[in-house]
């Protein structure tokens, strides 16, 4: 799953949101690193709508302005959960390996010296 897709699905995970709220949420979730433009956002929304991962939750007029809110579908929730699980497994494994190598580094309590050839971060 591409990062913008993951971020959009995550932004919709807890509540339906409209276009500008999604741009703000994506920026917040990514700590300001990903700033979606309007064209990019609607490209991704159209694709996710086509894939059945999101749906239009409501079309309303707020203060005289058109506003369409989007929500995750069941398939979207499943896809996000699967991707989150995959990322969690990778992160856990990365942490495990880093912890192992840190323990072996000189100066650490319980250091076991240099890792054997072929071991460690393979």
């Amino acid at each position: 799953m591409q990062e913008p897709t993951l971020l959009l699905l995550t932004a919709l995970a807890d509540a339906p949101r409209h276009g500008y709220a999604l741009i703000q949420e994506v920026a917040a979730i990514s700590d300001g690193r990903v700033k979606m433009r309007t064209g990019t956002l609607y490209g991704a929304l159209d694709r996710l709508l086509g894939q059945g991962l999101i749906e239009v939750a409501a079309e309303e007029v707020v203060d005289g302005r058109a506003r369409r809110t989007y929500a995750l579908t069941g398939a979207g929730r499943e896809a996000l959960a699967a991707e989150a699980g995959r990322l969690r497994a990778v992160a856990t494994e990365a942490e495990r390996r880093l912890t192992k190598i840190r323990a072996m580094l000189p100066g650490n309590a319980g250091s076991q010296g240099r890792p054997a050839s072929g071991g460690g971060l393979s």
Partner: peptide, 13 residues
């Protein structure tokens, strides 16, 4: 279908 919505998001961004 989407023009008004695009314009609104554009205005906000």
């Amino acid at each position: 279908e989407r023009g008004e919505e695009l314009a609104e998001v554009f205005a906000d961004t």
